[in-house]
Design a protein around this nucleic acid. Structure first.
Length: 414
RNA sequence: GCGGUCGUAGCUCAGUUGGUUAGAGCGCCGGUUUGUGGUACCGGAGGUCGGGGGUUCGAAACCCCUCGUCCGCCCCA
């Protein structure tokens, strides 16, 4: 008989618990609080969609679509895909549910995403993001609002000093096309000096050469034309409005003329919040304006902006956190006291006081558990106290202890 | 997908040129204290040495394969 082999977790997945989960939860809770301050609604979408949702939106040739998606045929033969990003599914929901009537629609969501990649720290096959989108708004004010919200999120997470907002514009289609043409001409002239990767990029996605890390590419990139020379007046006006809005809101940013987008549908504003504390996984929040996406999914022209941030990466910057302490631990002695304690803990909890009681153990163990849980008070209920209709309330920080009538316990520990 | 690193207790790590029953700290459990936590002291449990195969009288250590981790590239949050 062979030994039973415990199944292992799938590569690139994580079980999050304890101090790491506290950090993870802190990120999500903070995001939920901040998005309400900005009057963003919350939406839930399925974790899988028809494969076409992502293939069309991301572009068939991108790495994400061509080799990183978890795609499979379901039992009826339909090709489904575990979402590798949020935006495409949100746009699909926007179109299929008629959310256009709410435009401009400010939406947030968060949850798991899936990409078949080589795992590293801060990079997983199932990972989690928070996401914010504004659909149906072509005004630069929408870009500004999203960026100010992101900035406030970093501040409230306490990690703003390690993170920098990098900002660029990709222009409108006309600007972008002109810039692209100029870039291709420049890089073609120096093709032989480019790295092998960048020579491939030149044929597939020339903008991507700009953020190449290869030292051979740096001098050629340094002389490459910048978007500013190709911007139409409208595109320039738009970008100026965004930067002026950020300045007015007191949000620090730096221009990064080499910041481009991997996905095809981005226009105008592109941005990333970058840290130098996570190695190669420096981008902790990224996004931009994707005015062309809704049309790519068969909808009407719907200018939109959005961003997403990796919860794991944010949680790593936040650092491990302790679980919140409870207020009261009830320590009963004997069966009669254990029964009576049920009423006491119910009253405490109904009164909004975080309370716990161990299922078993002698007094010493229960006191230790009370201490470990960070309880401010122990409510000790023994035979003597019970007979008098009282309980001993002990302040665990000072060690002081006094008898309190059972009906007064909630007030005594408040 | 490419190149590299590292896998020993729940965690962080020792482990001599290959040589008996594989160690420490922290954590966990118990005791000193049969109605009182934090400190201290004492004791205990806990290990397929990632897995499989090979070399050898003998492997945690050497070789091969494999799985996983971490780092860089690609790409991206």
């Amino acid at each position: 008989m062979s030994k039973i082999q415990t199944p292992q977790a799938i590569r690139g997945t994580q079980d999050i618990f304890g101090p790491e989960q506290e950090a993870f939860g802190f990120v999500v809770d903070t995001f939920e609080r901040v998005r309400r301050l900005y009057n963003f609604k919350r939406a839930e979408m399925p974790v899988f969609e028809p494969t076409a949702v992502f293939a069309r939106s991301l572009g068939e040739t991108t790495d994400v679509v061509s080799k990183e998606m978890y795609s499979f045929d379901d039992r009826s033969g339909d090709s489904l895909t575990l979402r590798p990003e949020f935006t495409a599914g949100i746009v699909r929901a926007y179109l299929t549910n008629g959310w256009q009537q709410h435009a401009p629609l400010k939406l947030t969501t968060h949850g798991p995403l899936f990409r078949y990649e080589r795992p590293q720290k801060g990079r997983y096959r199932q990972f989690h993001q928070i996401d914010a989108e504004i659909l149906g708004a072509g005004e630069p004010a929408a870009d500004v609002e999203l960026l100010v919200m992101a900035d406030q999120l970093f501040k409230e997470l306490g990690i703003d000093d390690g993170v920098t907002l990098h900002l660029n514009t990709l222009g409108d289609p006309e600007s972008r096309a002109a810039w692209r043409t100029a870039l291709v001409a420049h890089f073609e002239k120096h093709r032989g000096g480019l790295s092998e990767d960048s020579q491939t990029r030149l044929d597939v996605n020339p903008l991507r050469i700009l953020d190449s890390k290869d030292p051979r590419d740096r001098p050629i990139v340094g002389e490459a034309p910048v978007i500013d020379d190709s911007l139409t007046d409208e595109a320039r006006t738009f970008f100026d409005a965004v930067t002026a809005g950020l300045d007015a809101a007191g949000v620090a940013w730096t221009r990064n003329a080499r910041l481009v987008r991997g996905f095809d549908y981005y226009r105008h504003t592109a941005f990333e919040f970058i840290t130098d504390r996570l190695g190669a996984q420096g981008t902790v929040l990224g996004g931009g304006r994707y005015d062309g996406l809704v049309e790519a999914l068969g909808g009407p022209h719907t200018p939109s902006v959005g961003w997403a941030a990796g919860i794991e990466r944010l949680a790593m910057l936040v650092g491990e956190r302790d679980a919140p302490s409870i207020d009261v631990a009830v320590v009963p002695l004997g069966e009669a006291a254990e029964q009576a304690a049920n009423g006491i803990i119910a009253n405490l909890r109904r009164g909004g006081i975080a309370t716990d009681m161990a299922y078993r153990g002698n007094m010493k163990k229960r006191m230790k558990k009370a201490n470990d849980a960070g309880a401010r008070f122990a409510v000790i209920l023994g035979e003597d106290e019970l007979a008098n209709g009282k309980a001993a309330v002990k302040d665990l920080s000072t060690g002081e202890q006094r008898d309190v009538a059972l009906g007064d316990i909630v007030d005594a520990v408040r």
